[in-house]
Design a protein around this nucleic acid. Structure first.
Length: 289
DNA sequence: CGGTACGCCTGAAGGC
DNA sequence: TGCCTTCAGGCGTACC
């Protein structure tokens, strides 16, 4: 389940594509792709622009979304969803049909004979194409909050104002901050010692500062570790991550808290399994005189 | 309109 | 052993 660290590792692993030209592209499942016209209206057309003929000029990321930019200005936005991944097959190996894994929905061929595959068994991910980078920023990324990797306490304060939602629900809201999913939300809240059910507007300034720092730390550390490989995540070179071994609470329900040894609890917040320590992340107490 | 509920989809895992 | 059910979850959409 790729979140910001896994998408960032995927982005970094695609650097061999810079300067390469797409000589052919195949869309094997049309329903994973949206195209945007110059007017910005999303629509599904018979021919979708998978950047054929274009030369890759840069690779960017905002939150969990990845964008491939080309020298002629076109932009392809890739959302990995829950089970999506990219696989880059290098040019020195001959490609056989058996090289193409199941659930491969799009294939790009490059001028050096390398192949890029978009694989997504659950199809929660997808591709969106834009005629310009501006169209991507205007019509898609404008809906995203600030990138979680550089989130500041003031950003969280702004998003938390007058919000009665549980703080975990806010962290998962990509329009509030972009990049945090269920895993890193739980990890960040544990590190900041904040109860996931706390109303966002009830957080104190020190708590917001702590939380922003925890989010940046947890995400940066996970990137360094290559991302979390829980089931089958790997970057585009096939390299798996080890950040799952750093998790303090995620998927550790009923196991001892690494800080106090109390048994970790599971509850549901915002429809998501949520693991926390009731002693290290206590429910906010009403202040008494 | 802020917030919650649901459905999409497949494979892993658990129960009987 | 094997079939059936449940769960996992990002995110768009429906709903109160």
């Amino acid at each position: 389940m790729p979140e910001l660290p896994e998408v960032e590792r995927t982005r970094l692993s695609l650097s061999p594509l810079l300067g390469r030209t797409i000589t052919a592209a195949t869309l094997r499942r049309a329903d994973i792709c949206d195209s945007f016209s110059n007017a910005g209206t999303p629509h599904r057309t018979a021919s979708r622009d998978l950047l054929t003929g274009a030369t890759i000029s840069s690779l960017t990321r905002r939150g969990k979304q990845l964008a491939i930019h080309t020298a002629d200005g076109r932009t392809l936005c890739i959302q990995l969803g829950m089970s999506g991944r990219l696989l880059l097959l290098p040019s020195h190996a001959p490609h056989r049909p058996s090289d193409i894994p199941p659930h491969t929905h799009a294939i790009w061929l490059f001028d050096d004979n390398s192949l890029l595959l978009f694989i997504d068994p659950r199809r929660f991910g997808g591709l969106s194409t834009y005629p310009t980078e501006h169209a991507l920023l205007e019509h898609r990324w404008s809906a995203l909050g600030p990138d979680a990797l550089s989130i500041r306490a003031s950003d969280l304060a702004h998003a938390s104002e007058n919000s009665h939602r549980p703080i975990k629900s806010l962290l998962l809201d990509q329009s509030a901050l972009a990049g945090v999913g269920n895993i890193y939300a739980d990890e960040s809240l544990f590190r900041a010692r904040i109860n996931p059910s706390t109303h966002a507007s009830a957080l104190t300034k020190p708590q917001l500062t702590s939380l922003a720092g925890a989010i940046r730390f947890i995400l940066a550390r996970a990137i360094k570790a290559g991302g979390s490989t829980l089931r089958d995540y790997a970057d585009s070179a096939g390299t798996r991550g080890t950040a799952q071994f750093l998790h303090a609470v995620y998927a550790r329900a009923n196991q001892p808290c690494l800080r106090c040894s109390d048994s970790l609890l599971t509850i549901r917040v915002a429809q998501r399994a949520t693991v926390f320590c009731r002693r290290c992340q206590p429910t906010a107490q009403v202040k008494r005189a």
